[in-house]
Design a protein around this nucleic acid. Structure first.
Ligand SMILES: NC(=O)c1ccc[n+]([C@@H]2O[C@H](COP(=O)([O-])OP(=O)(O)OC[C@H]3O[C@@H](n4cnc5c(N)ncnc54)[C@H](O)[C@@H]3O)[C@@H](O)[C@H]2O)c1
Ligand SMILES: NC(=O)c1ccc[n+]([C@@H]2O[C@H](COP(=O)([O-])OP(=O)(O)OC[C@H]3O[C@@H](n4cnc5c(N)ncnc54)[C@H](O)[C@@H]3O)[C@@H](O)[C@H]2O)c1
Lengths: 212, 212
DNA sequence: TCGTTGTTGTGAAATGATTCACATATCTTC
DNA sequence: GAAGATATGTGAATCATTTCACAACAACGA
């Protein structure tokens, strides 16, 4: 049960599958190929594409290169996506040194922390004092931040982010935060995912028996 | 935009909010309280509850203790949830030492790896050779594993897990894996989440302009 | 050239999720 | 102990998403 994705997530998946097919030497692809690869109906693939004016040709399918170019533009993958990481502890540092981001066109520009023992502005990948957050973000034109601070600091740090030009936050603290009008928050809650796995394993497939 | 949750995830959230309310001294709660806290309509809260026979009383709402007892049972939180971690690198070790799990009633019982430099069966939290996986899982009655191995090992390691009593896997490798009949897989793909944030920030709120 | 085949693009239909709305039950007050 | 106020529980209505189904069209083979 591969967890229902929304349309934006599906676009990313199409992109990822298309790269694999391309690496395999494919030049064109049909909606069923993509459907098979992602366990979606071909009709949904076509509907998604049509919503974003990603067109193919009847009988001949979609040109992979063309589709990728359009998807990359749509997803902002045509330029490097710059982010910062706030909270450079265990998770934060793992992310700062994660090589997988580069492959995805994501560049971690800096880390931020309040602990002087961690701050190191002259490292190749600098860790700066959170005090410098606002001006830095503005100067560098950053819009997205990852937040990996302790649970009890999360709300307060979020206020700092919301007071800056940041428009999207990926939050690792297991506390439900609210972004307000102009700041989107996405929460990663690993404990909750595990809880959820237990639940789904318990009711393998079918929903809890209803008693009328 | 707090990312649409499914019903199982909402149950976890109700639970979490109920604990907070209880800590604040509340004894009863109304569907609107929960709705407000989680940005859901009160009607949805009641529908969810009714689907699982979580009942309250008209005019008087729901008894928090009662609700929590039932939710805990439903979510398997009435006993410790044991898991193992396969792949004890940066992410794996961060998770192994994460204190937040204990607070959620989740216990990491062991780690598994193939690198002899990492294996350490006598540590307080042992890291075992992956070869011992099947028997260990069976002996300990584990059903859920976190997988944090390199991308190119993921498929192969998943085969090991699928050949065991494991029924649910939380996968950190950014490769779409398929669990088959009796093994549920949930993927955490941080790069994809970031990509997604960029997308949503780009189209703040409204969907891409359709041209008829 | 012309039929045959196979795939897109998209309205219409089906399914699924959420909200509405209200009958029904419980508390509170007089 | 009746009247009023308030919340639940749920069938019906609404809204969103997905699938169906097919006309339109491009490629291919004869
Ligand atoms: N470690 C895990 O495996 C794990 C798993 C799931 C969730 N989480 C969550 O991720 C978050 C971070 O976890 P961690 O294990 O990396 O914690 P950590 O304690 O290792 O690191 C937290 C970092 O944040 C910094 N910090 C503290 N207050 C700050 C502030 N006000 N502003 C900026 N930085 C501040 C600290 O100096 C530290 O460097 C926590 O909310 C935790 O619950 C962690
Ligand atoms: N580090 C991050 O911040 C980060 C972020 C997002 C996703 N990920 C993903 O998480 C996964 C793990 O990342 P990491 O940074 O912890 O990697 P890592 O290289 O630090 O750790 C991987 C561990 O897996 C072990 N391993 C290798 N092959 C194995 C096998 N066949 N069986 C069992 N164990 C094996 C290695 O010995 C190592 O200990 C990767 O797929 C990565 O793409 C990591």
């Amino acid at each position: 049960m591969p967890m229902k994705l929304d349309i934006a997530q599906r676009l990313s998946q199409y992109r990822s599958v298309l790269y694999k097919l391309k690496a395999l030497g494919f030049v064109r692809v049909f909606s069923d190929n993509l459907g098979d690869a992602l366990e979606l109906s071909p009709a949904l693939v076509r509907k998604d594409f049509s919503l974003f004016h990603l067109t193919g040709n009847k009988r001949v399918g979609y040109q992979i290169d063309d589709l990728l170019a359009k998807l990359n533009r749509l997803l902002g993958k045509d330029k490097t996506q710059k982010i910062v990481i706030v909270g450079c502890g265990k998770i934060g540092q793992a992310l700062m040194s994660y090589s997988g981001f580069a492959r995805e066109g994501i560049q971690v520009v800096a880390g931020f922390d309040t602990n002087p023992a961690v701050i190191n502005p002259h490292a190749p990948l600098p860790i700066l004092d959170l005090k410098e957050f606002g001006p830095f973000i503005k100067r560098e034109g950053i819009r997205i931040a990852i937040m990996a601070v302790p649970d009890n600091a999360a709300a307060q740090v979020l206020d700092v982010l919301r007071g800056s030009e940041i428009r999207g936050v990926l939050n690792f603290a297991p506390v439900p935060l609210r972004g307000g009008d102009h700041c989107i928050i996405r929460n990663i809650n690993i404990g909750l995912e595990i809880e959820n796995l237990f639940y789904h394993v318990k009711f393998s497939g079918k929903l809890g028996g209803r008693t009328p």
